[in-house]
């Protein structure tokens, strides 16, 4: 079994309401923050049997719905 992390973030041009709220809270606590964005991290473990083309499999999984390309970007960690 091999484990990967899919990191999903809202696109820069889309208003990130959660990121803005967290940013405001950090500012209120006088932290020197410039910007905060809130996304999600999805842990995906694949069977060993298919390790040869894990990258394609992961991309297929992600493109079938783990992220919405209209408003999000993704990166895969662990490849």
């Amino acid at each position: 079994m091999k484990t990967y992390f899919v990191r999903i973030l809202p696109r820069a041009e889309v208003l990130d309401v959660q990121g803005r709220a967290v940013y405001q809270m950090l500012k209120n606590h006088q932290h020197p923050v410039e910007k905060v964005r809130v996304g999600k991290l999805i842990e995906v473990s694949l069977n060993d049997s298919v390790s040869a083309n894990n990258q394609e499999i992961l991309k297929k999984i992600i493109q079938e719905g783990l992220y919405n390309p209209l408003v999000e970007t993704f990166e895969i960690e662990g490849l």
């Binding site: 709220a21 719905g65 919405n68 209209l70």
Partner: peptide, 16 residues
């Protein structure tokens, strides 16, 4: 929208 039958997407309300 998520199914691609309609354009666009619905995001969290501006004021959360």
């Amino acid at each position: 929208c998520e199914a691609g039958l309609l354009p666009g997407v619905l995001l969290q309300n501006e004021k959360s």
